[in-house]
Design a protein around this nucleic acid. Structure first.
Lengths: 128, 128
DNA sequence: CATGACGGTATCATTTCCGATACTATGAGC
DNA sequence: GCTCATAGTATCGGAAATGATACCGTCATG
């Protein structure tokens, strides 16, 4: 259970902030939750949304999210395998949080573009 | 700069979510921001609010927050030293985010009590 | 001189995170 | 038998985060 970072959340009232942060932290959870907010997705569909995540990591994050009761994992007895991920009711309660996170990012970071404009020289680090 | 976790935020629209998360992540940033929302605080005052944080960590988190433009560090030329931390305007823009985090925590975790009150047998799945 | 208060900094060791790669299982198609 | 597709799992190694502890600098007090 690598998700436990605080043995004791001794942080007075602000504690609730940390408690929440701890649950949705983890490098990919935020985005996963965000995508799942829009509907059920299969494992590989999720992977396509997260181009740089490894299979191992995606699985790990999904498991933790499942453990925390945020996502539901549905396995279909088919071949090839089919596994769907969706939010539980508890997972949906995170919507305002994810939304706040998204909105802030949209307004205050350079990632606030839903529709990538190809006319923008985004990442163009001179390689030499 | 230890706070960079994603080399590339290739996560489609949800990217903004991660971008924001990255800035307020860091084990203590959330709580620090929360406390600073209520007003300027001195270093040791902050420490008292975070009983389990080490001096080293608190300093580190504060520096990152400062680097990211969220907090303002004011040093007074006195002895013994006096350093005050307060939110910048940019820092205040995080208020809705912190609030959403706090509210979710208040409602869905056992830390939702300003005045410790364990009369709430929260539905704890994964009973370990 | 020694101690205390305040706010740090430096160093060391451990824990945890995360990526790369390889292996598993099954039915379809050739 | 070989390859493809899907969804994982197992193992190894390097990087980053975090904790513990000791040391720094200054003025006041005794």
């Amino acid at each position: 259970m690598p998700r436990i970072r605080h043995k004791r959340l001794d942080c007075s009232p602000g504690c609730a902030v940390e408690a929440t942060l701890e649950l949705i932290d983890g490098k990919w959870k935020g985005v996963i939750l965000f995508h799942l907010l829009h509907g059920t997705m299969r494992f590989n569909a999720l992977r396509k949304r997260l181009p740089t995540v490894t299979q191992r990591m995606l699985t790990a994050q999904l498991r933790e999210l499942e453990q925390d009761g945020f996502v539901l994992r549905t396995v279909y007895a088919e071949v090839p395998p089919k596994v769907e991920y969706s939010l539980t009711e508890r997972g949906r309660t995170l919507e305002p949080v994810i939304t706040a996170l998204k909105q802030w990012g949209d307004t205050h970071t350079r990632f606030g573009t839903d529709t990538q404009r190809e006319t923008e020289p985004e990442a163009a680090p001179a390689g030499g």
